[in-house]
Design a binder for these strands. Structure first.
Lengths: 119, 119
DNA sequence: CACCTGCTTCGATGGACGTCAAGATAGACA
DNA sequence: TGTCTATCTTGACGTCCATCGAAGCAGGTG
């Protein structure tokens, strides 16, 4: 199942990152890139924020929708910035509120990296 | 050593940790468990070690096969222990050498979490 | 039995990270 | 235009983590 629809939206480390972990040993450079994405999801608050945005209707959510993750709003903003820097989210200001959206290509790339050897 | 620190990821390989991120917002408990696995792969050295074991013939490799990741051997052992605590690897001593093997169920669970939305 | 090799554990250090409080900025409404 | 709400940024603090050197333990080999 080759879903090779890679959007060239992101400038840096996005979709064509790495082969599946079960295929070949990653090089140091590949591991650095992939580990940055995994590290972005390695925090419970960030993972929860990401799932909140990813599961929202239309794939986008504003900060006003996320206010019950257990941390203060500046911390939420900080984590959203981290996710945006990792290429997992994109932000857009529509008037008063800022909407965050998931980057489906990056999600697919991470899933491909974790694909088991024999599907 | 004490087995009391093993994360509840491996309690039963039939129970996946969490639903896909794109389906529902994760609860705090689910996010805690899933983030522990992602954090284990959030380090370049660990990710490289994991891919070395996962891509090895038969899905197992001994520490003697991994000696070019750029860190000292104690550090390699430290990271392998972390991966083992996260439930991603299992170790077995066969004579002189210790062999590490991947846990395919956990790999599949992580891939399922990252599965893109399937319309 | 003694030595040697391979792997783990211990203690310490330096850097990175998560968290919050306070200030700054952008848009909306009267 | 002025003010108010909502969000982002900055600075600081405490904690966790990766890394290393040295010591400890297990197993094989002479």
């Amino acid at each position: 199942m080759s879903n090779a629809k890679v959007l060239p939206v992101l400038e840096s480390d996005a979709a064509p990152c790495c082969p599946p972990l079960t295929e070949r040993p990653l090089t140091a450079e590949e591991a650095e890139r992939a580990a940055a994405m995994f590290k972005a999801l390695g925090d419970p608050v960030r993972l929860r924020l990401f799932s909140l945005v990813a599961s929202h209707a239309g794939g986008e959510a504003c900060v006003c929708d996320i206010s019950d993750v257990g941390v203060s709003q500046p911390t939420v903003s900080h984590h959203l910035k981290k996710l945006k820097e990792a290429g997992l989210l994109t932000s857009e200001r529509r008037g008063t509120w800022v909407y965050y959206r998931v980057e489906p290509s990056v999600l697919a790339a991470m899933g491909r990296i974790l694909a088991p050897a024999r599907p």
